[in-house]
Computed example of a mutant assay.
Amino acid sequence: MRSANRRWIPLLVALAVWLGISSVPAGGQEKVSLTFGDYPYGYAANAIISYQALYEGIVKPEGVDLQIIHSPIDAAERLMMAGQRDLGVMAFLAYFTARARGLPLVAIAVEQHLQKTERTGIPANALYVRGAAGIDHPKKLEGKKIGLPLLRSASSLYTQAILKDKYGVDLSKITWVDKPPPILYQLLQSGEIDATNLYGEPSYRAQRDPSIKVLLVTPDEWEAMTGTTTITTLIVAKTSTVEKYPKALKSVLSALQKSREYGLQHTDQVLELAAKKLGFSKDHLKQGMGTAYFPFEVGPKDLASMKLLLKYAVDLKMIDKELDLATLFADLR
């Protein structure tokens, strides 16, 4: 009787696998479990379009059990620096800061490029001023209070570099106010600050506010000044994760690219899903479409951009040491 029962064991195992009961995928290897630190939506339509299919499970990385953990960007970056996420999103300046401290992190892809206004008709990232403040030239920002959304953000470096090198602004004469974009928009409205950098959804509101005007558009000014692309954020991983699971990380990047393509092909669907969660209308979110692109890879132009950004980070004393560009991106091949 026992012998007869044993004959059923292979059949039962096969049935369990077919039904998905087994934790081992069809390829015969267990899935790699990875944590991904993200900040939900990043206030912008283009992030929603690129990520929503991954958030909803419409797209999944092959061979990877990916746990996506949302938190505000500053918290997400601190957690990456503390080694509490396998990979995640970081502003390039936060990443430079981490590497200058000797933390075991390495970038695996560029997450976001800002697009010039001529491509979209909408500022992707801009410096706004109160109309009543009488600021019609960047030089008039001296002696004023200016908001910057997180001093480790890409906006911080771009804004200061453009003001200093293109317009000759004495940065030491500016009082910088470090808050998240929604709060900076409120402070600008109330007159507590004279100008602020804004991006994403708060920028959409500022564009419709008759009391506020655009002083300069960040990607337009940066590309005109330097001829390089406007990188803002990177996908960064722990060095130990890169060494142990390069194929799994490649799978995650591939899933991110597929999620982006799904969002571009099903824009109304993904914006509707996100709008319900964020409490905005779909049409409101649509205003920012096309202002940024999420490549989830590294191209030759990106390396040229990073080289210049490293130089500015040192010149503006945002990091206290030079970094070797050749070590900043991992080769996952």
Rank of each mutant, 00 (worst) to 15 (best):
M1L: 13
N5A: 15
R6K: 11
W8T: 14
L11R: 15
L11I: 14
L15V: 12
V17E: 12
L19E: 10
G20Q: 11
S22K: 15
G28M: 13
K31S: 13
Y43D: 10
A44R: 05
L54K: 10
G63T: 13
I68N: 05
I69H: 08
P72W: 08
E77V: 08
L79F: 06
D86Q: 09
L93Y: 00
L93S: 00
A100L: 02
G102M: 06
L105E: 05
I108C: 05
E118A: 12
N125S: 10
A126P: 03
G134T: 10
K139D: 07
G143E: 02
G143P: 03
A154N: 03
L157Q: 08
G168I: 14
G168H: 05
G168M: 11
I174W: 00
T175W: 03
K179S: 10
P180S: 12
G191N: 07
E192N: 07
N197C: 03
N197R: 01
Y199G: 02
S203H: 00
Y204R: 07
R205A: 14
S211R: 15
T218Q: 00
P219N: 07
D220H: 04
D220Q: 04
W222L: 01
M225R: 01
G227S: 03
T230S: 04
T230Q: 01
I231P: 00
I231C: 01
T233R: 14
I235L: 12
T239M: 13
S240L: 11
T241D: 05
T241H: 06
K247S: 15
S251H: 07
L253W: 07
K258P: 06
R260N: 06
E261V: 09
E261Y: 06
G263V: 04
L264Y: 02
V270I: 09
E272A: 14
L278G: 07
F280N: 08
S281Y: 05
H284F: 15
K286T: 12
Q287G: 08
Y293T: 14
F296R: 15
E297K: 15
K307G: 04
L310E: 02
M318C: 03
I319G: 01
D320E: 09
D324P: 02
A326Q: 14
